[in-house]
Design a protein around this nucleic acid. Structure first.
Lengths: 258, 258
DNA sequence: GAATGTGAAAGCGTTCACAGCG
DNA sequence: CGCTGTGAACGCTTTCACATTC
């Protein structure tokens, strides 16, 4: 996966390649004082997955879960899972497992999900439409509060309950409504300019669906979702597999081409 | 199940790198034509990005490009870029740079883009619709050749030129049409069952938009695109930043005290 | 007995810095 | 001289394995 990674551009920074995911915090105990040791970026992504699995388990009435079980459900191995959870602190009970609700709470806190993050979607084409209609976005906590497009026919039309505004109004509207996450679902040509306006509007993070490498200031976090890249990675694996005729030994499914 | 982790080797040629984890091949790679070695997964993802940038450059008439320039355009540093390209072989000219067209060709070949990969989209809701309408999918080479849904009102209706079939017909239709990539855009509850049927239909790779961890046989490659996870990662960074008022002093990677 | 939490080791991936070549 | 190609150093992740705790 992934693989991923967002920001970074700033061409020539002398030293300080920054980018080190560090997040430190004061200490201890439960309650609100979050204790955030620096958590590896890779672990953060998995925490979100664990959270989903745990939520499902909670709904089904599970109260505790062992690392092995949770790991399996999340598609990782148990050592990794325990290590990941250990970044949150020690919330398990030896010989028993983890309390599901406690863990849900801890992960939510760590991921900052106790706060709401208002989302703007830019580009109300097929994809933007789909995103806007997700209605309150996955698992709530990410309400869509602004939509933008250039198409005059769309301006003012409500999509998923929110009227579409014009691209030109991005900075004001975002600032006004306190948008913290901008989603770019425009054609590639518009993406950079949209991005700049989002930044101008005070947005802190950007989720970019446009196939472009965005240039952003240091302090803006960017994640990209690139369909073409995903498909090409899959294509690579298909090709690799096809060339793997060599392995000979009992590989299930032969399918070789001389 | 465990997250997969494939052995990866190169894409090409009779020779099969011994693919043992550690070993780099001894340097002896002389100017041989395309001798393969294993390409890191992370590099593969970037190759796709380089390819896009290079194609754009080619269209604008560039014939050669230096690593520094290409790297900047792709949002990486030049050392990484050169390393990545070196996995393809030596196609640059010292003191000059890379020939754009040659590089495009090499990357396409490595990514398996010289072949077509037929795509099926399952779940013709908002997102599936958007995907189906991408029409021939990003950058051609990934024609959508089958659509599936459960909704009786949708069956038979053409979307983006392809009539929608029923989920139950996934195995037959996929096998018939030689689908190699399945895209899952269904609600989470349906995803695993859809996945199983795609596999039964001979699909080799799956791109999963549903927020579920899919269980698949060893030989199937899965990539997931998870909106909720992306947003939660961004949320984490917002939270981290908010808590960062603490270290106060300038960016310099403050290793803060507990 | 059972399962967590974690140092230490093993793998990977990125960056450095320079040799090598046009 | 300029720029590629790459061994080697470095740092992040994952895995191992076991002491620790309930």
């Amino acid at each position: 996966m992934v693989a991923r990674r967002g920001r970074r551009n700033g061409a020539e920074v002398p030293f300080d390649a920054d980018n080190a995911p560090t997040a430190e915090m004061p200490a201890v105990t439960d309650g609100d004082p979050v204790r955030v040791r620096s958590i590896p970026e890779a672990a953060v992504a998995r925490l979100a997955v664990y959270l989903r699995v745990l939520s499902a388990m909670a709904e089904q009435g599970s109260t505790t879960v062992a690392s092995e079980e949770l790991a399996t459900a999340a598609g990782v191995n148990s050592a990794k899972l325990r290590k990941d959870l250990s970044y949150l602190g020690s919330y398990g009970t030896r010989g028993v497992g983890y309390d599901v609700r406690v863990l849900v709470g801890q992960i939510e806190r760590t991921l900052g999900l106790t706060r709401q993050h208002k989302v703007a979607v830019v580009g109300i084409g097929n994809l933007g439409h789909a995103l806007a209609n997700y209605g309150g976005f996955p698992g709530r906590g990410f309400p869509v509060e602004a939509l933008f497009d250039v198409d005059p026919d769309l301006i003012g039309v409500p999509v998923g309950g929110i009227p579409v505004s014009h691209l030109d109004d991005i900075p004001e509207v975002c600032a006004e409504r306190g948008i913290s996450i901008g989603v770019i679902a425009t054609p590639p040509t518009a993406a950079q300019s949209v991005c700049d306006r989002l930044v101008a509007g005070g947005v802190q993070c950007i989720l970019n669906f446009a196939p472009v490498v965005l240039q952003v200031p240091e302090h803006i976090e960017v994640r990209k979702v690139d369909l073409a890249v995903e498909l090409q990675i899959l294509s690579f694996h298909v090709a690799r597999r096809a060339d793997e005729k060599k392995g000979s030994h009992a590989v299930g499914n032969g399918m070789v081409v001389p």
